[in-house]
């Protein structure tokens, strides 16, 4: 039994997440896509942990989850602040920092 399908699934999910970040404009959905990418990475980590038979991969996945939690907290707070002032959750509207 090869674990390759898991890795392939991980790659597919990662790519879908990336494309989502690039195409969606709602900041919340963009964040969800980022989460999707992180989860895809976690899947790869856990898969490799099983492949190699040690727990380091799982510990790494655990760390990723914590970082993701922190990121979501701050990110959502930022989205809230922006929404409060601009009445919009679109990432394209926050485009004043430019030429």
């Amino acid at each position: 039994m090869s674990l390759t399908p898991y890795i392939v699934l991980s790659a597919i999910l990662f790519t879908i997440g990336a494309v989502g970040v690039l195409t969606r404009r709602n900041a919340l959905v963009v964040f969800m896509c980022v989460e999707l990418m992180l989860n895809a990475c976690n899947l790869a980590l856990v898969t490799f942990a099983k492949q190699h038979g040690n727990l380091d991969g799982q510990v790494a996945a655990f760390f990723v989850m914590v970082v993701a939690a922190a990121e979501v907290v701050v990110g959502l707070a930022i989205i809230m602040t922006i929404f409060r002032t601009r009445r919009s959750a679109s990432v394209d509207d926050a485009s004043l920092l430019k030429y």
Partner: peptide
């Protein structure tokens, strides 16, 4: 060249990807 700096996060993300 500054037109590249269009302020859209998604454009920058596209470059990153």
């Amino acid at each position: 060249g500054r037109r590249l700096q269009n302020g859209f996060v998604r454009s920058y993300a596209l470059s990153v990807v």
